[in-house]
């Protein structure tokens, strides 16, 4: 017996890496405004939305940086290794634009010259190497400027479509920064797959589920969430390192946006912190002090 050809569903492998989209900052702004709604932190979230708007404008104006993957690149290290200065050259031009957007929103930040001094703190935050939070609006705006440049860089890279070996998955394979959390996709093809999202360039890279991304202890993790609120956000906590980072589930909310949803769910951080877990994921807009 012979049959007509059939159209069959495919389970093509999902890629190891995903580039950030070109409307990343606009989506963040929009998500922040949605989350602001009637939340107690509405003012704050709305101001950050203005900052994201300014990031999008700067991103659109920046254009392709023209930096490409070196031939035969094997992802053994971050793509940016040794090229930071070249990549970052554009940030001083962007900073004043973001600063003036903030000024218009009533947030005073330092001028470009003084902002330079904040670079080490921002770098340390992104590398996850120091007490991982920024302390002043100036630092946050500087980080925002760097985000624009690095996202543009990541956006222009040809990332492989298949599964590549990522030697160090704890840090961004593109820029080497620490992830701010992970998104878990919904839908056909990559439903259930977890991608960590870079806190700087928003590159996403696949990381297996049910494993602590902070200490790589395999097998069992706890999910802590808030009852009857923020169903898409869970803190993935580990009994071994007592650390946690947040997971954002698309199947609970299709437009969940890690950076924005993180800021809107600080209540979860407070409650999880009270259980004795420490946060291991930076967010440049989360100021302390």
């Amino acid at each position: 017996m012979q049959f007509p050809p059939q159209s069959l569903p495919s389970a093509d492998d999902y890629p190891s890496l995903l580039r950030p989209g070109t409307s990343l900052f606009a989506r963040r702004a929009s998500r922040l405004r949605t989350l602001a709604g009637s939340a107690p932190a509405a003012d704050w979230l709305n101001r950050l939305a203005l900052l994201c708007d300014a990031q999008q404008t700067a991103f659109d104006a920046l254009g392709d940086l023209g930096l490409r993957l070196p031939a035969g690149f094997a992802w053994q290290q971050a793509v940016s290794a040794g090229r930071e200065a070249e990549i970052e050259a554009a940030w001083p031009a962007i900073y004043p634009q973001l600063a003036s957007a903030m000024a218009a929103a009533g947030v005073a930040v330092a001028d470009l010259g003084s902002a330079q001094a904040s670079l080490p703190a921002v770098r340390a935050l992104l590398a996850g190497e120091a007490e991982a939070a920024l302390q002043s609006p100036t630092e946050a705006v500087l980080a925002a400027a760097l985000q624009v440049v690095w996202t543009r860089f990541a956006q222009g890279l040809d990332v492989p479509t298949g599964k590549v070996l990522l030697a160090e998955r704890g840090h961004c394979p593109c820029c080497g920064s620490a992830p701010l959390g992970s998104i878990v996709f919904a839908g056909q093809g990559r439903g259930g797959a977890r991608y960590q999202e870079c806190s700087l360039c928003a590159t996403r890279w696949n990381a297996v589920r049910a494993r602590c991304t902070l200490c790589d202890d395999p097998g069992v993790v706890a999910y802590l969430g808030i009852e009857d609120a923020f169903p898409a956000v869970r803190a993935e906590a580990c009994e071994h390192c007592k650390g946690y980072s947040k997971l954002y589930f698309q199947d609970k909310d299709l437009v969940v946006e890690p950076l924005a949803d993180d800021l809107a769910t600080l209540a979860l951080d407070v409650l999880v912190g009270e259980q004795g877990y420490a946060r291991g994921a930076p967010n440049p807009f989360l100021l302390t002090g």
């Binding site: 609006p137 902070l214 650390g243 600080l266």
Partner: peptide, 25 residues
Amino acid sequence: MNMNRRQFFKVCSAGLGGSSIALMG
């Protein structure tokens, strides 16, 4: 345990009461 070089911090009510974040609204 295979710790990578990530540092941990706690988000606590005291931290959120800080002046900088308040400056941002």
